[in-house]
Amino acid sequence: MVGLVLVSHSAGLAAEAVALAKGIAGAQVPVAAAGGTEDGGLGTSVDLVEEAVRAVDQGDGVVLIPDLGSSVLTARLLEEDGRIVVADVPFVEGAIAAAVAAGADAPLADVLASAEESRTFRKL
């Protein structure tokens, strides 16, 4: 199964987004949070992101979903062609779309495509 890492400036936001994605997509979907800095502040920690990648990597690839700013830059530094990819998507909607697709055993490219579709979802 494709793994997901939700990278946010905020540890709380990342953790709750993971809980929401797993709640909707299923607890079996490997989704991990990498939020905030190591000392609990707002920001991004490469170490926390790498740790989260290891936790969800089942060999089928990992999608990183960053919120903004340094989360995006840090995620982009960790990209590995065809194995670790960054999704340019809205944080919450993208995470849920990707988690549902991953839970249906979709391959990496399809999980990424599902996440990217969330960019154009209209709510009204």
Binding site: G43, D47, S70, T74, L77
Partner: peptide, 15 residues
């Protein structure tokens, strides 16, 4: 710089 700054300037200067 990449590992320890925590803000956008870390990855940017680091790269």
């Amino acid at each position: 710089l990449i590992r320890r700054v925590g803000g956008a300037s870390g990855p940017l200067y680091g790269s």
